[in-house]
């Protein structure tokens, strides 16, 4: 049983993700999207990058590639699926998760460390943390602003489907701690079931001891269950 990290043309966090999972003792392999999904993967990662050059909208092309039908079927049968950064954009574009990630309020690409407050610790991706805990992950995106209708966002909040919000080091969520203009500072959400989730910040980049913090491992532990 192996986690499939799907490579699209333009993915560039695929190998980082395999390395981060492998270092945690989780079997993971790269899967080229044209080769289709291996039988019964233990999990699926849609990794970061710039699939299809972000043409049309970030994630739009990859979301309509044939392997995403396999991903959808696997997700429906209970396989854990995590979309990170470009993978989050792909997840929303393919309707695995709600809303959309679009152009940052700054209209610029932003590469920086941000603080995140854990909103719901009762998911496979956040069970390693406490609700309200603050973690620090990097972001690297030009299209990370979470956009959704107000009604739909109310539903997500009522259903506890927000994983993380952008905050300051003390966990205070405000406009000043919102790096990209995301509605209600949302940095990550779950799908209809919480074994499917997407997030713009990069847990795999804070998961290797040689590179400093390993706070991101808590998210990747969702593949251990």
């Amino acid at each position: 049983m192996t986690v499939a990290v799907i490579q699209f043309g333009g993915s560039n966090c695929d190998r980082d993700t395999v390395q981060a999972l492998t270092a945690m003792g989780v079997d993971a392999e790269l899967v080229w999207h044209e080769d289709g999904l291996p039988a019964s993967p233990s999990g699926i990662v849609l990794p970061g990058g710039f699939s299809y050059g972000d043409y049309l909208r970030a994630g739009a092309m990859a979301a309509r590639s044939p392997i995403m039908e396999d991903v959808r079927e696997a997700a429906e049968s209970g396989t854990p699926v995590l979309g990170i950064c470009n993978g989050a954009q792909i997840g929303c574009e393919s309707s695995l998760t709600p809303g959309a990630f679009t152009t940052n309020e700054s209209a610029r690409f932003q590469c920086e460390r941000v603080h995140l407050r854990v909103e719901n610790a009762d998911t496979p991706w956040t069970a390693a943390y406490d609700e309200g805990e603050v973690v620090e992950f990097p972001i690297a995106h030009g299209e990370g602003r979470f956009e959704i209708t107000d009604d739909r966002l109310d539903e997500l909040e009522d259903d506890d489907r927000i994983l993380f919000r952008y905050c300051d080091a003390d966990g205070t969520v405000s406009d000043d701690t919102n790096p990209n203009g995301s509605k209600h500072n949302v940095a990550g959400v779950t799908g209809d079931n919480d074994h499917v989730a997407v997030m713009m910040p990069h847990p795999e980049r804070v998961s290797l001891p040689d590179l400093g913090s390993t706070e991101g491992r808590g998210v990747l532990r969702g593949f251990e269950s």
């Binding site: 049309l56 909208r57 739009a60 309509r64 574009e93 809303g99 959309a100 679009t102 959704i148 209708t149």
Partner: peptide, 9 residues
Amino acid sequence: ERLLANPTL
């Protein structure tokens, strides 16, 4: 509806 526009946006 299937590709060129995203109904959320």
